[in-house]
């Protein structure tokens, strides 16, 4: 039952993509900015988790929570310093700034601690059990359940809390939301905080699952998570989850078929096909452009 195994690997990878993609999609939904630095927040989260496990001898869950909190703060700082002034700037200016912030975080981290990779410590026992003929490690079950819990939590925040309501309102129509007395700046900061916290969680999970982290690890998962967000329909939260899972499974299947060097290309081919044939994504609605 090789295929069940591959499917489970794909879903584990996909849930990491989905967690990162959620941050992209929420930020894009609210200020129409592709936050290129999001992949680097993921990297920073991974390193914070690493240091809290190795230096402070914490367990997986405390490390996860510390990393999420630190990333939330980091995301808000990035937003306040770099993106806030660009609310009314052109899209190209905002995009270039995001690229600049991304490079600054990557090379800032390299400058501080060097470019050498780190090996993530084992936090779970490597036990596994057989299911339908596939070997499933406890680790991947835990990772999957953490991702699912976080996504359910996100759905709860977005749909049941006041902040979530404000976020939906701002993303629907910023001006009208402002007139209704919603504090737009704080809502945008909250969006960044939640998205970055999810990226931080994804970073810790990625580290535990793949065991190797380095300062440039965020680039490729970041771009792929963006692909996942576009695939699901950018700005749509369930879309990001589905897009991430689909992308993870597709990549794993491509690797399993023996084309592991082409794995990265698969994501971009999907991206280009989606952009050309259905730019609004799987869950998106077509919007007509008005003059």
């Amino acid at each position: 039952m090789e295929w069940v195994q591959q499917l489970i690997n794909g879903i584990s990878l996909g849930s990491i993509y989905a967690l990162i993609a959620l941050g992209y999609t929420m930020v894009y939904g609210i200020i129409k900015l592709i936050n290129f630095a999001h992949g680097d927040v993921f990297m920073v989260g991974s390193f914070i988790g690493f240091y809290s496990i190795t230096v402070f001898n914490l367990g997986f869950f405390p490390a996860l929570i510390i990393s999420m909190a630190a990333c939330a703060l980091f995301g808000v700082i990035i937003e306040r310093i770099a993106y806030k002034r660009l609310r009314n700037a052109t899209r190209i200016a905002a995009l270039i700034t995001a690229i600049g912030v991304s490079l600054l975080i990557e090379y800032g981290v390299i400058y501080i601690r060097g470019a050498q990779p780190e090996a993530y410590p084992d936090v779970f026992s490597n036990r596994s059990f057989a299911f339908l003929g596939a070997q499933i490690s406890i680790q991947s079950i835990l990772i999957l359940s953490v991702s699912v819990v976080l996504m359910i939590l996100l759905q709860f925040i977005v749909h049941k809390t006041k902040t979530g309501k404000a976020m939906r309102a701002v993303s629907h129509d910023t001006e009208a939301a402002k007139l209704m007395g919603i504090n737009v700046d704080n809502t945008i900061s909250a969006t960044f905080a939640i998205g970055s916290a999810l990226a931080g969680a994804a970073g810790v999970i990625f580290g535990v699952y793949y065991t190797k982290i380095d300062p440039l690890m965020g680039v490729i998962p970041g771009v792929k998570a963006f692909v996942a967000a576009v695939l699901g329909g950018i700005g749509i939260i369930p879309g990001a989850m589905v897009g991430g899972l689909v992308l993870g499974v597709v990549e794993t299947v491509v690797s399993a078929l023996g084309f592991s060097l082409w794995r990265d290309a698969a994501a971009f081919v999907i991206l280009i096909l989606i952009l050309i044939f259905r730019p609004s994504g799987i869950f998106g609605k077509n919007t007509r452009e008005k003059v």
Partner: peptide
């Protein structure tokens, strides 16, 4: 190379802001 990239990225951000 790190210093170079940090300068590049700061230039990008500051010019855009």
């Amino acid at each position: 190379p790190e210093t170079r990239m940090i300068i590049y990225s700061l230039v990008l951000i500051l010019v855009m802001l």
